[in-house]
């Protein structure tokens, strides 16, 4: 045993120190680059402002929307939780590809499970940095305080982040296997869900043929649950149970897909020449 290495740390099946190393690496990066931090905060504020003013306008002409305060802004913030958790996961992964550091990590003692947990932690940190200012702006400007949703908000957050991470994991596997040519998926794949998981309208608005597809998506249950909470002031735990059950399936399948894609990348030799 090399005398520089702590035998206990080296032997750990799962090392929080290695997870901490990867989180620290990305916190150093964020600290060193203010444009990255501004970019994280910029989009949520822009979107909340646009949709918030639209909501104010609609409220003046609709008793339904006037009664269901924040339904559009709330849905938008929830959509941001979903999309930003996936994009945050993917960007954190892509930073290693862009800096040609992935080879160092894959040949280090860092295990795939530790790496994935570090991506989830960084996705959460990025999400909170981006969303907290947007949610605070929504209170005075549009009279909508998402934090007043309390326990329900925690459940919505968790369910949406799990979906985002599952999708991020599949995208990371595809990039490992196919190189940076697959990078576009990190920015686009999540938007496939936008019309189907009924962010701004109930599932009943979809054509009957499409509704079963919508009910196969975990976020659909979250957005239906959000509408139930805002319109009927009722927390639908049955909907949340469905969302978490589907997320469990998604994440298990995503972990399997990631592991298969990593094995395929090792077999094809693409990890030796990571790039386009």
């Amino acid at each position: 045993m090399s005398h520089a290495v702590d035998p206990g740390l080296a032997a750990a099946r799962f090392s929080f120190r290695r997870v901490g190393a990867m989180v620290l690496r990305h916190l150093y990066l964020l600290r060193s680059s203010w444009p990255r931090t501004v970019e994280i905060i910029y989009w949520p504020i822009m979107q909340v402002s646009t949709w918030g003013f639209l909501q104010l306008y609609v409220n003046q002409h609709s008793t339904f929307f006037a009664q269901a305060v924040g339904i559009l802004v709330g849905a938008l913030l929830m959509w941001d939780i979903l999309s930003r958790s996936q994009i945050g996961f993917s960007i954190t992964f892509l930073e290693e590809m862009w800096s040609r550091n992935m080879g160092n990590l894959l040949m280090s003692p860092l295990k795939p499970s530790e790496y994935i947990v570090s991506l989830m932690v960084m996705s959460s940190i990025r999400l909170f940095i981006g969303l907290i200012p947007a949610t605070l702006i929504a209170i005075p400007l549009f009279g909508f305080n998402i934090w007043s949703l309390g326990f329900g908000l925690g459940l919505f957050f968790a369910a949406l982040m799990l979906t985002g991470w599952a999708l991020g994991l599949v995208i990371a596997g595809l990039i490992l296997r196919h190189g940076l040519g697959a990078e576009g998926l990190a920015w686009s794949l999540i938007f496939l869900m936008l019309p189907l998981c009924c962010v701004y309208y109930p599932v009943a608005q979809l054509p009957a043929l499409v509704q079963p597809i919508a009910w196969m998506l975990a976020p659909t249950y979250v957005f239906e649950g959000l509408r139930a909470l805002l319109i009927e002031q009722r927390l639908r735990l049955d909907l949340m149970a469905w969302a978490f059950a589907l997320d469990l399936v998604y994440f298990s399948v995503a972990a399997l897909v990631f592991s298969r894609l990593l094995a395929a990348a090792r077999a094809s030799g693409s990890l030796v020449q990571l790039g386009e």
């Binding site: 520089a4 290495v5 702590d6 740390l9 080296a10 750990a12 090392s15 120190r17 290695r18 901490g20 190393a21 990867m22 620290l24 690496r25 150093y28 990066l29 060193s32 680059s33 930073e95 800096s99 550091n101 160092n104 990590l105 280090s108 003692p109 860092l110």
Partner: peptide, 20 residues
């Protein structure tokens, strides 16, 4: 990683390798 200092890089890799 180019944006990290040499010390930061060595700290991260030292933690990954379990250096005491």
């Amino acid at each position: 990683p180019h944006r990290l200092t040499v010390r930061q890089n060595l700290t991260v890799f030292g933690m990954l390798y379990g250096v005491a």
